[in-house]
Every structure is written in structure tokens, then in C-alpha cells.
């Protein structure tokens, strides 16, 4: 089973990288970009009987730092 975990910074947490990329996009002449936030995707290939609970635990314990990050778990097949 293929899993995609999307880890993103929580709203309200300043994203210095996103801000730098935002500036760069403006520097390239792109108009109308209001905000840029940078996250991370983690792709997992797990046994088909892996439980949702186990996937959540993987995110909570390691893949995301829940002090600053949110995550979503997507099953790809």
C-alpha cells in the first residue's frame, strides 16, 4: 500500500523559507502571489494490513513535529 504523508507548518507559524521563496517569485516578476508555505511529502510503501492507527502514530512520533507541523495521510492505491 502506497501512502503519502503531507507535512505542513501550522497556520501562524512563520515560515522563513516560504517567505524567501515568495520574495524570489516576486523578483521573477510573478504577480498576485499572496503567500508561500513550504512543506514536506513523505512517501511510504507499507504492508496492506497496516492500520490507520499505526500510520497516525508514525506521523505523531516521527514524521511530523506536532509542535509546529500538521500532517495529512493519503492512501494512494
Amino acid at each position: 500500500m502506497k501512502i503519502r504523508v503531507l507535512v505542513s507548518l501550522k497556520p501562524g507559524v512563520l515560515d522563513p523559507q516560504g517567505r524567501a521563496v515568495h520574495h524570489a517569485l516576486e523578483g521573477l516578476g510573478f504577480k498576485g502571489v499572496d503567500d508561500v508555505r513550504i512543506g514536506r511529502t513523505v512517501e511510504l510503501d507499507v504492508a496492506d494490513d497496516t492500520s490507520d492507527t499505526a500510520l497516525t502514530e508514525m506521523c505523531e512520533k516521527l514524521l511530523a513535529n506536532t509542535v509546529i507541523e500538521n500532517y495529512t495521510i493519503e492512501k494512494l492505491d
Binding site: V13, L14, P16, Q17, A20, N65, V67, I68
Partner: peptide, 17 residues
């Protein structure tokens, strides 16, 4: 220590990058 939750908070990329 923050990742191990012995201390609260997190250390993020420097604001200046």
C-alpha cells in the same frame, strides 16, 4: 531535547535563512 519532548517548543530555520 525538544524533539524528545523533554523541553517544550521547537527550533526552526533561522529567520534570516
Amino acid at each position: 531535547l525538544t524533539e524528545a519532548r523533554l523541553l517544550p517548543g521547537a527550533l526552526m530555520r533561522n529567520a534570516s535563512q
